[in-house]
Amino acid sequence: MKILADQNMPLVEQYFADLGRVERFDGRSLQSDQLVDVDVLLTRSVTQVNEALLNKANKLKFVGTATIGVDHIDTDLLTQRGIAFTSAPGCNAVAVAEYVISSLFALAQENASSIEGKTIGIVGVGSIGSCLRKKLAALDVNILVCDPPKHEAGLLAEHCDLDTLLAQSDIVTFHVPLVKTGKHSTLHLMNKARLAALKSGVTLINASRGDVIDNHALLELMQGGAALDLVLDVWENEPTILTELLDYVRFASVHIAGHTLEGKARGTQMLYQALCNIEGLKADKSLADFLPKPSVTDVSLQDTFTLADLGQLIHLVYDVRRDDGILRRHLALQGFDSLRKNYPIRREFSTVNITGAGDYAPTLRELGFNILNNGHIGDY
């Protein structure tokens, strides 16, 4: 098979080389001519897979996107053409949840405050929102959730309507797909009116899709003196973002919330498993075969450790301020896509084994850390 894969997708050769010949492509500049005689297309969110791209795809039988979202894929077209398709739901859920948690503790440190007792509104409780909800439940916070489609399907009894959630939350974080039309459209879900209605001091986090928040309306609001703490990983019109908004954003990054080494590799693995299933082959490769050992693996906590020290532990693994600094210092020279393509390695909380957790073991375990008991991962 001829396999065409996005240049930013990790471990493709390691997983797919036994299945065919792998060639790489630039996700934003892929042309229809490049799909001639291609059997398998492996892509990410920056590539629009539509009629214009596929009009010369004479052999294509499988399309996979190593992302949760599928708004860049014309799935109806693939069905019409009999082309198998799979996404990677949940592949980067842990990564995005940890991005949000790192941001919350960084804001708490800089504001000399605490997230304890805060009300956190999660908009969208799919794979990512559910993962974040589970992690936050280990902390002393109040959680509100909003997901109208899930609620209407009877899958979310605790649903809170969006405007009520916005009015009651100290922190609002978005984890919805981009839906441009229909009853549950998320395009400019945070429009000028909703942004203006936010109470002073709210933290607004977007690690879903840039178009969920009207960036121009947000800029106008901030220029007018609104007191909001903004954490933006995604932007309208990527890679040509509204740079004027950067002056008002506390932590900004280049659409990398889900880009842990584990998160990206999980996406590749899921596509490999799906293709093997279609081809009737045994999927006998796993992440453990390929991921390098992290630079920090073992942490010993002392008796003096309390949850007030939790931010230090979290930022030992990942501090969102690193990525904010990279964007601000290098965006003008290198550009959004280049920074995203060359994103430095980031690992997940699960790569750290903790001893001496004591009474804090359940909390740290729920956040994702490995808790060691007598040198072995397990319960206290």
Results as ranks from 00 to 15, higher is better:
152 E>L: 13
187 L>C: 06
156 L>T: 11
174 F>T: 03
225 G>M: 04
236 E>L: 09
204 L>V: 14
158 E>Q: 15
212 V>G: 14
141 V>K: 09
204 L>M: 05
149 P>Y: 12
211 D>R: 04
169 S>Q: 10
177 P>K: 00
204 L>G: 03
176 V>G: 06
159 H>V: 01
212 V>H: 15
217 A>R: 07
157 A>G: 04
188 H>M: 14
163 D>S: 12
189 L>G: 05
205 I>E: 06
207 A>D: 09
184 H>W: 13
206 N>V: 13
193 A>F: 02
212 V>L: 13
138 A>I: 02
219 L>N: 05
229 D>G: 08
210 G>V: 01
172 V>Q: 09
143 I>V: 13
142 N>M: 08
158 E>N: 08
231 V>N: 00
240 T>L: 15
235 W>H: 13
146 C>F: 03
157 A>L: 10
204 L>T: 00
239 P>Q: 10
162 L>G: 00
237 N>W: 05
154 G>S: 02
234 V>Q: 08
202 V>W: 11
209 R>Q: 07
226 A>I: 08
193 A>I: 04
172 V>G: 12
222 M>A: 01
184 H>G: 00
199 K>H: 12
214 D>K: 00
173 T>F: 03
215 N>H: 14
196 A>P: 01
161 D>L: 02
144 L>N: 03
228 L>D: 07
238 E>K: 13
158 E>C: 12
139 L>K: 11
176 V>M: 02
216 H>L: 13
213 I>T: 03
145 V>E: 04
242 L>H: 09
141 V>G: 06
174 F>R: 04
245 L>H: 06
239 P>F: 09
230 L>P: 06
139 L>T: 05
175 H>P: 09
190 M>T: 01
232 L>V: 05
240 T>P: 06
157 A>R: 12
227 A>R: 10
234 V>Y: 11
188 H>I: 15
200 S>G: 03
138 A>T: 05
221 L>M: 09
143 I>H: 14
170 D>A: 14
170 D>S: 11
167 A>N: 08
150 K>V: 00
182 G>F: 03
148 P>S: 12
218 L>Y: 01
239 P>D: 12
211 D>I: 01
215 N>V: 09
229 D>Q: 14
189 L>Q: 08
210 G>K: 01
180 K>Y: 04
148 P>A: 11
139 L>V: 09
196 A>E: 11
164 T>E: 08
199 K>V: 01
153 A>C: 11
